[in-house]
Amino acid sequence: MNAKEKARERTTALKRLREEHAETVARTQALLKEQQAFRKKLRAAMKGGPKTIPQIAAASGLPSDKVLWHVMAMKKYDMVREVGRDADYYQYQLAEEVAE
């Protein structure tokens, strides 16, 4: 198979997948949007130094269990770092701020 045929096959396959999975793709897109909105608020609340989960939740008005989940997700993919501790809580900070 040459490169051109390969590219065509890929395009057809993707098209077919998009048709077959229209519903799940739409649902995932909605989820992504929701996630992005959440992250925006979260990031804003995290600006300006190390914070604990309750502090981030208070600053953002977001529920603390969801804040924890997102902070951990971001930590896993290197967007957030754990930087210290405040009593019974660990503190987190945006990776770009830590790097500065």
Partner: peptide, 29 residues
């Protein structure tokens, strides 16, 4: 469920085989 992974991922750090897998039901394509 306590943390996240992506729609495409290596299942975990010691997975065998150590190969990515795409979850088409949660993929944005």
């Amino acid at each position: 469920g306590l943390s996240a992974h992506r729609a495409i991922r290596v299942p975990f750090s010691t997975a065998v085989p150590q190969k990515a897998v795409l979850d088409i039901d949660h993929c944005l394509l």
